[in-house]
């Protein structure tokens, strides 16, 4: 293929309006050459998943600072399963206590980036994760 761009949906689920992190990461991913579909605030898990499917996104990045991470991650991941789209990578960040991370990974989140993570670690991780995912697919 001439160009195999990484497409990623960056979303703010729920009612939390703190989008500094989401916007910074959206810009950082763009600057690393990706196409970032930015959905804005107040997205339901259904909207996020449908968006990722319509946009044929490789990954969904969600940013949550309101403490509602358990609910939103599990809902998004379940819906992806329901839509037979579990190959779409889910990752995220925000104010997420370390103790909660193992469970989020267990239910299927690809990575959780805590406060203070350099944006480059995030984009590097995503590039690798997408590469692995594509290698597994027979497109």
């Amino acid at each position: 293929m001439a160009e195999d761009k990484i497409r990623v949906v960056v979303a703010k689920p729920g009612l939390d309006g703190h989008d500094r992190g989401a916007k910074v990461i959206a810009r950082a991913l763009r600057d690393s050459g990706m196409e970032v579909i930015y959905t804005g605030l107040r997205q339901t898990p259904e909207q996020i998943v449908e968006t990722a499917i319509q946009e044929d996104a490789d990954a969904i990045g969600i940013s949550i600072l309101s403490g509602a991470h358990e609910y939103y991650f599990s809902k998004v991941i379940d819906l992806l399963k329901e839509k037979e789209a579990s190959d779409i990578i889910v990752f995220g960040g925000g104010v997420i206590p370390e103790d909660d991370v193992p469970h989020l990974l267990e239910i299927g989140a690809g990575a959780i980036f805590g406060p203070g993570t350099p944006t480059t670690s995030c984009s590097e991780w995503l590039k690798n994760a997408v590469k692995e995912k594509r290698a597994m697919e027979t497109r």
């Binding site: 763009r30 600057d31 690393s32 050459g33 970032v36 579909i37 959905t39 259904e46 968006t51 319509q54």
Partner: peptide, 27 residues
């Protein structure tokens, strides 16, 4: 960089769960 932020659909997100509407962003 070849990257892009595709944000037009923000204003149409309420249609995203409608099976009769398909929205696609392109860089």
């Amino acid at each position: 960089t070849g990257g892009a932020i595709l944000a037009d659909r923000i204003r149409m997100q309420r249609h995203s769960v409608d099976p009769n509407v398909y929205i696609r962003s392109m860089g």
